[in-house]
Design a protein around this nucleic acid. Structure first.
Lengths: 346, 346
DNA sequence: TTGTACGCGTTATCAG
DNA sequence: CTGATAACGCGTACAA
């Protein structure tokens, strides 16, 4: 037995498709007798409207898309993504929408954007000039960018990455650290577009370091490493860290999950945090509060970001006007992974 | 300027809609000249096929649905859900599918299932007899259940919850614990269907306790508490725990994230783990390995569960035969949160 | 090699 | 006031 279509119900009742549709969607437009008969027969046959056809007809899908810069396993290996998801989910809940995760297909965002049946998109760090944005435009899809550069006329949601990175760096230098490593996160290969936030933070770190360290201090050095935004990535980067001679006394990381991986691995090889190496993360994921010592980090509101983006998107779907830029509040959260450098490093 | 439809391209080129469609989807069926002209004009107009219409016509959506028993924020407050998601995501990646998260709408799963434009569903702990399953059937949607009871003819993926819970309990009793608390997790209000796994584990705990404790031991007692499957839920349940006199010496928890919340809070009120209270979790999320002491837990393969479910679903979509039941491997993972009971509790 | 017609559900518009 | 016709968007079996 195949699917029961509206046509089958129409034939079984003797009414037209229109009338059957009205029985469900605009009950007052038909007679009571008619409606009841149709509903009874429909229930009897087990009629469920084909959602695809329904969506096509209505011109809406009841779902919004989250365009991921990486595949799902990699993206969600970072708990910070889960926070953003939770924020978006709050709005989905209240608006009765589902959420479609759109990973790159064959390493390309384009296919997903072309073929996703969604009412709008939330993107992560999408560059205004990319071809992907071009397609989104052609499809007349409203979209919001989280952590991306503004300037394409579509709204962005973010924090002051540059300033916050600078704040973290100033704090570390003030504690006496002069040999500092920044660990940034590797963007997906196909996603050169995703580097805006990383660049902002790098500039912030570098600038603050240059400002805070006395000019010409020969011992001062700012180094740069990168790894995947995962626990394993953090653990792996320690192998590069320990190669550095002399060992840096402070490490600033662009992602908490990486910082935690680093801390784990440092413990394993017998180094203390913050005794031997001070550590500053970025994000303030829940995990940063459950490790010991608790992670000093740049706290940014992941859930709020997601919620703000989703709310803006919903407003766009209703045709309301939205602010082009939403800057949320972040702050340096002092906890237990930064101390003065060890004696030999001063 | 409105959307560019296939019709617009047909009119602009002078060919029919069919021919335009062939230019994209079956290039060899039309002349080279024709194709090139059509492609040029289409590119010029900025034609992007309407995905909704395309999906309707093809009878497939290129997305699978994950039916969540709770709203997105609550579901993903537990990192274990993220593991399942990552497993599913691996398959989405390789099959070029997107993933639609379907939370309950107005506390009801039914609406989501009726209106989701998906090729198939993965459900979490859905009861075979529920009305939701009825609708899934009517829609002829293939689906797979993770952590649910088998018996509706649709495949299930799970572990031996009962046996594993029993194993954890036996271990704890063997360590000398006689006053034990089980902390289970509260199902979503509207999702009475979700309790299968919880019941299985409860039976396993209880049975093993009864077997392992000498009959008639008056000091032996197994108590039962419940909370949300979140860090906050774990922290909150400690307030109930500390009311118990005498204090239990061991707590078995159905979720790692809850166990970690409990451990956090116990530390705050000055109790040691495992010195004062031994703790066993369930799941083996990454966080269980980063807390100190590391959490003793029942390890179950969340990623594998997600991947297995998604692979089975893909096979169903291809019309291939699938095994009705997939039982994955779990094991008791001994780490640092269980010791012998403190002297006063022996 | 190209075009006609159909299927899905909704709704503007028209007929009774 | 009640109910029906036709169009929307796309892909494709079938006809020409």
């Amino acid at each position: 037995m195949g699917r029961v279509t509206i046509r089958a119900v129409a034939e079984a009742t003797g009414f037209s498709k229109t009338t059957v549709s009205f029985a469900f969607n605009d009950p007052n437009r038909i007679g009571k007798q008619t409606r009841e008969k149709i509903l009874a027969v429909a229930a009897d046959l087990g009629y469920v409207p084909n959602p695809g056809a329904r969506n096509l007809s209505l011109g809406r899908h009841g779902t919004i898309g989250l365009l991921l810069p990486q595949n799902i396993p990699r993206a969600f290996a970072n708990p910070y993504m889960s926070l953003i998801l939770q924020g978006i989910g709050q709005v989905c809940e209240s608006e009765g929408h589902t959420l479609t995760l759109i990973p790159p297909i064959k390493e390309s965002l384009l296919l997903g954007v072309r073929s996703a049946a969604v009412d709008g998109l939330i993107t992560l760090g999408l560059d205004p000039g990319s071809e992907t944005v071009e397609v989104i435009r052609k499809r007349h899809l409203p979209f919001v960018t989280i952590d991306g550069r503004s300037g394409n006329g579509f709204p962005v949601v973010g924090i002051r990455d540059r300033e916050l990175a600078g704040e973290a760096m100033r704090y570390v230098v003030e504690q006496g650290h002069r040999r500092v490593v920044v660990v940034s996160i590797i963007d997906a290969r196909d996603f050169s577009e995703g580097s805006y936030v990383r660049n902002e933070r790098l500039v912030g770190y570098q600038h603050a370091f240059d400002q805070a360290v006395s000019a010409g201090d020969p011992s001062a050095e700012l180094l740069h490493l990168a790894c995947d935004a995962t626990l394993a990535g953090g653990r792996a980067v320690v192998e590069q860290l320990r190669e550095l001679k002399p060992l840096p006394s402070a490490v600033l990381v662009m992602s908490d999950i990486v910082a935690i991986g680093i801390m784990e691995r440092l413990f394993e090889i017998g180094l203390q945090v913050p005794g031997d190496i001070s550590l500053v993360g970025f994000d303030d994921i829940p995990e940063a509060g459950i490790v010991r010592p608790q992670l000093t980090t740049v706290s940014q509101p992941g859930e709020d970001k997601g919620r703000a983006a989703a709310e803006i998107l919903m407003r766009m779907l209703r045709g309301e006007h939205v602010r082009p830029e939403t800057v949320l509040h972040g702050r340096l959260l002092l906890r237990g992974t930064v101390s003065r450098p060890p004696a030999h490093a001063r």
